[in-house]
C-alpha cells in the first residue's frame, strides 16, 4: 500500500490494520509487516491510501 500526499495523519487506518503495520506521525507510514489486505483503504477518510503498483 502507498500513502499519498492527501494523508493528514488522523491514524484511523492504524486502528483497522489487522497487522499493526501502520505507524503514524503527522502522516501514516506503511511498514514491512503490511500484507496488502487493503482494509485500511476503506477506512481512510481522505482516500489517501492507494495500492502499490
Amino acid at each position: 500500500m502507498e500513502i499519498s500526499k492527501r494523508c493528514v495523519g488522523c491514524g484511523q487506518c492504524a486502528a483497522f490494520c489487522p497487522k499493526e503495520a501502520i505507524i503514524v506521525k503527522g502522516i501514516a507510514f506503511i511498514t514491512a509487516d503490511c500484507i496488502q489486505c487493503r482494509i485500511c483503504m476503506a477506512y481512510c477518510p481522505m482516500k489517501a491510501i492507494e495500492e502499490s503498483v
Binding site: 493528514v8 495523519g9 488522523c10 491514524g11 486502528a15 506521525k25 477518510p45 481522505m46
Partner: peptide, 10 residues
C-alpha cells in the same frame, strides 16, 4: 497513537 487533523479532515 499520535493523530493529526487539518484541511479536509480537520
Amino acid at each position: 497513537l499520535i493523530q493529526s487533523y487539518s484541511g479536509e479532515w480537520p
